[in-house]
Amino acid sequence: MPTFRHQGSPFALHDSMKRVGRVLCNIPLLARGLPPMSFIGINRGNYLSGLISFYEFADASLLAETLVDAYEMSAPSYVAAVATQRRPRSVELRERTRIQNLVAQLMGEHVAPHEAEEPIREHFADLSEGDREILVASITEVLSKVTPENSAAWGIDADAAQQYRDAIGSAPSFGLARK
């Protein structure tokens, strides 16, 4: 592999090649009108093991399975983001797994959006006040808008979303998130 020295680093070209490769893998998806692949939630261990298995043994099965799993997880989120024309903030991307886990927990415990602020603040007590404010607004908005039809975007199955809606006794709200 050729190396490129930039600012003293022999890895600059290698790192760029990874990014280009990830972008290129989206061309067939986008050409067919499908959401792009996101590597944010990919199981890193399986991904690296799959790459090694592919390069060393010409076996793409683990890599393919890992990519499909990541795509199935990320595609609904992309569709929901595009549908709402909302760009996620960096804290929402960094804390995606914790957000999904907390949303599932709050829905399972039938915590209504207007009752969720304190549990959200406690769950993210390790973050700055500004980040907690963003997450309070974001998660209460999810809780107020989740339906069986859009629940996959937050990693919730349709039945759980319907049970949540029934338990809190309110229809989804599509207004602005509470401040």
Rank of each mutant, 00 (worst) to 15 (best):
4 F>C: 08
5 R>G: 06
6 H>Y: 15
7 Q>F: 11
9 S>A: 06
11 F>S: 09
11 F>E: 11
11 F>M: 11
12 A>L: 07
12 A>T: 14
13 L>Q: 11
16 S>E: 09
19 R>K: 03
19 R>C: 02
20 V>Q: 08
21 G>S: 07
21 G>D: 05
23 V>I: 07
23 V>D: 12
24 L>E: 13
26 N>G: 07
27 I>K: 13
29 L>T: 02
29 L>E: 05
30 L>F: 08
31 A>G: 07
32 R>D: 07
34 L>H: 05
34 L>K: 06
35 P>Y: 04
38 S>V: 01
38 S>Y: 05
38 S>A: 10
39 F>P: 00
40 I>F: 12
41 G>N: 14
41 G>L: 04
41 G>K: 05
43 N>W: 08
44 R>I: 00
45 G>D: 13
46 N>V: 01
46 N>S: 11
46 N>H: 12
46 N>I: 02
47 Y>G: 05
47 Y>K: 01
47 Y>A: 04
54 F>C: 13
56 E>K: 10
57 F>T: 13
59 D>M: 10
59 D>R: 14
59 D>Q: 12
59 D>N: 15
60 A>D: 14
60 A>Q: 12
61 S>Q: 15
61 S>Y: 12
65 E>M: 13
65 E>Q: 15
66 T>M: 05
67 L>R: 06
68 V>K: 10
69 D>Q: 13
69 D>Y: 02
74 S>R: 01
75 A>C: 06
75 A>T: 03
76 P>Q: 05
76 P>L: 03
77 S>E: 10
78 Y>P: 00
78 Y>D: 04
83 A>S: 15
83 A>R: 15
85 Q>F: 12
88 P>G: 10
89 R>W: 04
89 R>T: 02
92 E>P: 05
95 E>C: 08
96 R>V: 06
98 R>I: 09
99 I>W: 01
99 I>H: 01
100 Q>E: 13
100 Q>W: 04
101 N>H: 11
104 A>L: 10
104 A>I: 03
105 Q>N: 08
106 L>R: 00
107 M>R: 05
110 H>A: 15
110 H>N: 13
111 V>K: 07
112 A>G: 11
112 A>Q: 09
114 H>C: 15
115 E>Q: 15
116 A>W: 01
119 P>F: 12
120 I>Q: 04
121 R>N: 05
123 H>C: 09
124 F>M: 02
124 F>Q: 00
124 F>W: 02
126 D>T: 08
127 L>I: 00
130 G>H: 14
130 G>P: 06
130 G>I: 06
131 D>H: 14
132 R>P: 00
132 R>M: 03
133 E>F: 11
134 I>H: 14
134 I>G: 07
138 S>T: 07
139 I>Q: 03
141 E>A: 15
142 V>E: 02
144 S>C: 07
144 S>Y: 03
149 E>N: 05
149 E>P: 00
151 S>R: 00
151 S>K: 01
152 A>M: 10
154 W>E: 08
155 G>K: 09
156 I>P: 02
156 I>S: 03
157 D>Y: 04
157 D>E: 11
159 D>M: 10
160 A>G: 08
163 Q>V: 05
164 Y>Q: 03
164 Y>W: 08
166 D>G: 06
166 D>P: 02
167 A>G: 11
169 G>F: 10
170 S>M: 14
170 S>R: 15
170 S>H: 13
170 S>I: 10
172 P>W: 09
173 S>W: 09
175 G>S: 09
175 G>T: 07
176 L>G: 07
177 A>H: 10
178 R>M: 11
178 R>V: 06
178 R>N: 09
179 K>T: 10
